[in-house]
Amino acid sequence: MIIRKEFSVLLLLLSLILALLPLTANRSFTAKPDKLLSDVLNEDASFTVDQVAEFIIREDNTVQLIDLRSPEEFRKQAIPGAVNIPYPEFVTKDPEIWLGNKNVRNIFYSAGDIESDYALVYARGLGYDNSYVMAGGVTEWIRTVMETKFTGDRITARENALFETRRRAGEMFTELNSLPDSLKMKFLESKKFSAKKLDGGCE
């Protein structure tokens, strides 16, 4: 009999603690601060636009590009293969639905740098170590890949390969973004994530 009373009192006391806590369904960072900081400041966390261009022309399916800009900006200019998750939405929903697949590398990009860097730290902090950024964002993409020009009269084989990659990625970018709006939307919509529905039940 006494054990029942003790157990009831314990449960009551524990729920008293819970009543004082600001509980939500939101998650918290699970990484250790020191490790997270050194991971995200490491160069390995960034890809250059040239590396991303290479992924695109190879149609590498181990890579998922995530565009953190607003839907309007995304509609105007999208990098082929990217999906759009506006940054404010990204940090208020559980990113499990977008980043849950551990077999792909998620590469964030935004207009410039800042949002993609937030997203990198946020994702890695929640334990998605398969997250990276494209350094420089769309600004850098346009400056490097789209406006690349061959100057001088001699070109080494390596330079030539790089130039070729940029040219082809640039062509794919232009092709996608010059599609009529309705067609383009259809194409982009088809790539959208459908939120994973949980399944379960009892008894």
């Binding site: 806590l21 998650r27 918290s28 960072f29 601060p33 940054y87 940090v91 937030y118 946020y122 902090g125």
Partner: peptide, 25 residues
């Protein structure tokens, strides 16, 4: 344990969404 979780100076705090909010706005 709860006090340590809530006020720890060395670890990340509870609720990632709340602390990231200024970056969203």
């Amino acid at each position: 344990l709860v006090l340590n979780r809530t006020f720890s100076q060395k670890n990340f705090r509870y609720d990632a969404v709340k602390w990231a909010e200024p970056s969203a706005t």
